[in-house]
Structure formats: structure tokens, C-alpha cells
Design a protein around this nucleic acid. Structure first.
Lengths: 338, 338
DNA sequence: CTGAAAGCGCTTACAG
DNA sequence: CTGAAAGCGCTTACAG
């Protein structure tokens, strides 16, 4: 005695046609809002459909030739609020454009990624948005492209090549952050968190470039890698402090690493900002009310998501258009930690 | 010169049948792993499919009678890490069971919710998981049930009725939290954040029950409502302190409210734990490394998601089974703020 | 402006 | 164990 009051038989356009006294082609036409049909006929058909409780059968439509309205979105790490915010932006834009999202979470597993990709292909997705799992082979790009499904890669690129991409200028962002720290009197600036991947390479490049530009020599001991999460950030700050290198500031791989670092600092009764300068990356919502509020590089995560979705939407409309690139320019968001 | 190298013609089971020298029924049978087909035939068909690059057309299959493998999941507030964690749990379980998730984010909009629900119906979703937007009319339940689509409601219930639900024991959780504060020497315990909805009602009930049991009279001035986010938590703590009521502790509507409160405390150079006791609700990942680490009521968010998904999966398998209920028992997770 | 017909790619009885 | 046939609900030319 639950759910399921299955309708005796499913209502189709022929039922509606019968009720409205027209042919089923006519029903199909009014359903898609064709201007070929006279106003009163349209009315009659709509009324009949409503009366019978007709529900459009999208699979049948797609089978006959209509394109799908589902778009696949592949995320790796929804536990990171940055990706949650990006996803919200993507979803908003896509739904606004009349699509529905097929969401998958890979947890950095390349096999899982392959699996969901194939599943989305079977579903006949109208497009795919992919944030590639770490260690994704570049060949994946050609594979998906060969399927003929419009693709846009976001956040992590897959190396050089002819594909649409939306992300942020990581090198510039960390360059700016590091420079700010150097210019506000810190000479020993660490780099905390991150383990591998393009994004880390880009951010490290920005760190080194800023150092070089200010004439301070790069000290590998000041960079301490860790998984890009809170735990990693916590460990990383403790490790840096334990080295007694005289570091007074650090830029973090991303905001959640910074949050972990904040926690480690607090444990030692050190206050970020006055006792140790810290800059994050992303400007997730949480950073506005962390303790203390985090200075970070703002790349407007949900806007990034919307832009990435726009890129895909545009590709779907104009398959032949040239490569599209969106790179969010990071802005230093000064709060209390630096 | 991008994407799209559309295959000249799409490969169907008849192509595979031709290649393998069998009929298309046979191909269909091996595809679904029917034991009716001999081993060598199966091999031959599989090889032919692989050779031709055949892709199963799920819509066609569904049209002919197979059930859909897409399940709709409706979330309201992905910006709250609690929901992100729940979603991850749901997704994991569903994918594991061979489904794919149609995800929608309503942002607490009842209209948006209706829209995506109808969209999921058109998509022929095999089931729907709904965390209802605030102010969702109870009638929605009957509507969805009349569609004959298995439904499970999660986190926020829709009042009494015969429907599957997965959530947490909110009253018990806050009862436990409040009691702990009362028993550790605090007599003026506030309740921070939350604006409306069943969940708030339940949590407030727990707060009042704990007070009553300890014989302390309820003081409405000690409860300060606010949107259930970091901003709200921040405002809420400032407001409570401004009232100078002598409050020395508070239980928060949820973890992110507590994070905001932590930020407000930090700003006044007060340390949660020693200077003011605070307990959150949810035990989101972030709470382990907040500054300081948050004492909270653990309801294991991602497990809650998995359980909710299991409920739906079970309903799909056994449409006639009686109502299923899952209520996570909250456990006090002692860290440093209380 | 509207109707009759074919067909999208699959699965399901039904024969053999 | 395998083949021939019908049909799922729709859309798209094609006539009228």
C-alpha cells in the first residue's frame, strides 16, 4: 500500500488526437508549438491533452529524431565546496537553457570516469562537461570527440589540443598572491598543499615566477605537498612550522587547504593575519566567514560554472565554431589573513 | 574544426546481426546476457559488436519496454556541504546499482521544483529522490505518487503520510546536544540559526525538551533565528552576545551556522570551547578542521545519502512493500568547542 | 492547414 | 537455441 498507482494504460498522442478529433501528426505539431496549426485547433488539442493527463514521451521523440535534452556533467570531488559551487553554476545555466543534467561523481577514479562516460553515451547525452580525474590519459579527448558528442573540459585541462575549455588562470593567481605576500614584508613565503596535476603545476609556476621576479631564490623546503583537502592543509602547516625555517607566510593550493592551515594555527594559539599570513585560492563561500575570514584569490566559482556551461551550449549550437577558451582572471580578495 | 566527427550512420543491432550472421533477436538476447544463447554464438556476437563499434541505444530499448535506468535527485541547497555529502552518498549507491542520476538543484524554489519534477517524469525516471524545497505543499506527494514513479523523500519530511523517508532524528540530536551543555555547567544555553521548516521545528523541540527535563525555563530571547548559513551564524552569534543575557553556550541549527558563529567569536578574540561553548549539527567534513574543531551531532551525512538511495532502490524492486523509514541516530562528536 | 504512412532501434512473444 | 513479425510513441516528409 505505497506509491505506484500505475495508470491503466499510458496516454499517447493518438489518444489525444482521438479526443481532439484531429490526426496524431497534428497533435505532434501543436506539441512542438508549430505555427502551421490554427489557433482554435491548437486550443482544442491542448485541452484534450490536459483532460487526458497526457505526458510527452521524450524517449520516443528522441528515437524518432529529436535530439536529447540531457547533458552529462562529470565532477571528481564534490566534497570540495569549490566544485559544489561550480556545479551549481553549471546546473543553473543548463536548466535555464532547457536541459537536464546527468550528474556523475568519479572520486578521481579514471575507471569510474570511463564507466560514466559510456553510460552518458548510451543515454544519448546532447553534450558532456568533464572535469577530468587526475591521471586521465590525453587520449580520452579523442575518444569522446570520436563519439560526436560535444564536449567541454573544465577546471583541469588535458594539455594542448583543439578542445573547449573553461578554467581559471592559476599561474597568474598564485603569482599575484605570492607577490602580495612578498610586498607586504614577508621574505620566506611557503606554498602549502596540492599533490599533483596540471592545476598544481600551474600554481607552482606562479609561485616560482613571483619569487624570481622579486629576486628571492626558490627554496624547495618551503613547499610542502599534501592532498588538497582540510586534512592536508592542517598537516602541511604543522609540517612547515616544524621545519623552523622562519616562514611567516604561505599561499595555499586552495581554500580548503587554507582552512586546514587555519585550524593548525589556531591550535597553536596563533592568529592568521597577525601571526602568520595566509592566502587561499578559489574564494569559496566558506572563506568569507572562516575564522578568521580568509584572504584569497577570487575566481568566482559559480560564475566559472556558468561560463563553462555557456561554452558547451554554444558548441552545441555551433558545432563548427573554433575552439572556445574561458579563463577566469583571479582577483585578490583581501580579508583578514593577509 | 572542432569536436563532432559524426559517424556516417549509426550502427544498430541489425548491423551487428549481419556481421555475426545471426538474427537481430539473437543480438538483443546476447546483449542482455540471456542464457538462451550458446557460448560460441555469444562470443561471435560480442566480437562483431566490438568490431563495428556498436553502442546500445537505451532510448529505443526503453521505448520497447525496458525500464529506465535514470533516477532523479532533487537537492535544494548544494552550497551547504551537508547536502553535497548526502548527494555523494546517493550518487555512489545509485551508480553502484547500475543507475545514472538526473540531478537538479532547486535553490528552495517550489516552482523550479515542479518544473524539474515534470522534466524527470518526461524523462521517464525510474524513481525520484526528493528533498522538498521549503514551503512545498503536501499535495505534491500525491501528485508524484499518482504518476506511478517510486519516490523517496529525504532530510525534510512532508508531514505524516504513507511515503518512504530517510532523514535524521533531529529532536533527539538537539536534545542530546542541549543536555550535554546543561550538564557541563552551562545554564544559559542559546539556540542559533534556522528560519523555518520541519527540521527547525524538530530541532527546537529537542532544545525545549532538554531544557524542560533539566528544569530550566525556556527563554525565547536565547533563540535567535537566521538563515541557515555561515552569514546567518555570524549574525546570530553577534546578536546573542549583544543581548548581554549571560549566555555561555549555544547549540546551532547546523554546522555551517556554527562556522559563522565561530567566525564571530574569533573576531572578538574569544575562543570557542574555553570562552563560549558551541555545538553544531550534521558533522560535515569541514567540522573536523574548523578553527577550532567543532563539537557536533554526527548524523553521518554521506551514509544518510546511501541509506536514502537504498530505500528507493528497495521500493523499485518491491513496489508493494510497506512504508520504509530511515532515521539516523545522532551521536555527540566531542571535539574542542564544547 | 491536416491526414496517411514510414520508420527511429530495440524487445518480446511466438514459431520452429 | 534462433528467426520473422509486431509494436513501443513519436516525428517527418509527402500528399492533399
Amino acid at each position: 500500500m505505497n506509491n505506484n498507482t500505475p495508470s491503466p494504460r499510458t496516454i499517447t498522442i493518438v489518444d489525444v488526437a482521438l479526443e481532439a478529433n484531429v490526426s496524431k501528426s497534428t497533435v505532434s505539431l501543436v506539441l512542438k508549438g508549430s505555427p502551421l496549426i490554427r489557433g482554435d485547433t491548437t486550443e482544442r488539442v491542448r485541452a484534450a491533452a490536459a483532460k487526458l493527463g497526457y505526458v510527452y514521451n521524450r524517449r520516443a521523440g528522441e528515437l524518432r529524431g529529436n535530439s536529447s535534452n540531457a547533458i552529462g556533467v562529470i565532477i571528481n570531488d564534490l566534497m570540495n565546496p569549490f566544485f559544489a559551487e561550480v556545479l551549481v553554476g553549471i546546473e543553473r545555466k543548463l536548466v535555464e537553457a532547457g536541459y537536464i543534467v546527468l550528474m556523475a561523481h568519479t572520486n578521481e577514479s579514471v575507471e569510474m570516469q570511463t564507466k560514466v562516460l559510456m553510460s552518458m553515451r548510451e543515454q544519448n547525452a546532447a553534450g558532456i562537461m568533464l572535469c577530468p580525474a587526475l591521471n586521465t590519459p590525453r587520449t580520452l579527448l579523442k575518444t569522446v570527440q570520436s563519439w560526436g558528442i560535444p564536449l567541454t573540459v573544465f577546471v583541469r585541462n588535458l594539455g594542448p589540443g583543439d578542445y573547449d575549455f573553461a578554467g581559471s588562470d592559476n599561474e597568474l593567481g598564485v603569482f599575484l598572491a605570492t607577490t602580495h605576500l612578498l610586498e607586504t614584508g614577508h621574505s620566506r613565503v611557503g606554498f602549502l598543499g596540492g599533490q599533483k596535476g596540471v592545476v598544481l603545476d600551474q600554481r607552482m609556476a606562479g609561485y616560482k615566477a613571483a619569487l624570481a621576479k622579486k629576486g628571492v631564490t626558490f627554496n624547495p623546503d618551503l613547499v610542502v605537498p599534501a592532498n588538497p583537502n582540510r586534512q592536508g592543509g592542517y598537516a602541511t602547516m604543522n609540517a612547515l612550522l616544524a621545519k623552523s625555517l622562519g616562514a611567516t607566510a604561505a599561499v595555499c593550493y586552495n581554500d580548503i587547504v587554507a582552512f586546514g592551515a587555519l585550524s593548525a594555527l589556531g591550535e597553536r594559539h596563533l592568529r592568521a593575519g597577525s601571526d602568520f599570513a595566509l592566502i587561499g585560492f578559489d574564494n569559496v563561500l566558506d572563506s568569507e566567514h572562516s575564522n578568521p575570514p580568509l584572504t584569497t584569490m577570487d575566481i568566482r566559482p559559480s560564475e566559472l560554472g556558468e561560463q563553462a556551461a555557456s561554452v558547451l551550449l554554444n558548441r552545441i549550437k555551433n558545432p563548427g565554431e573554433k575552439q572556445q577558451l574561458y579563463l577566469a582572471k583571479p582577483n585578490l580578495k583581501l580579508r583578514q589573513t593577509a
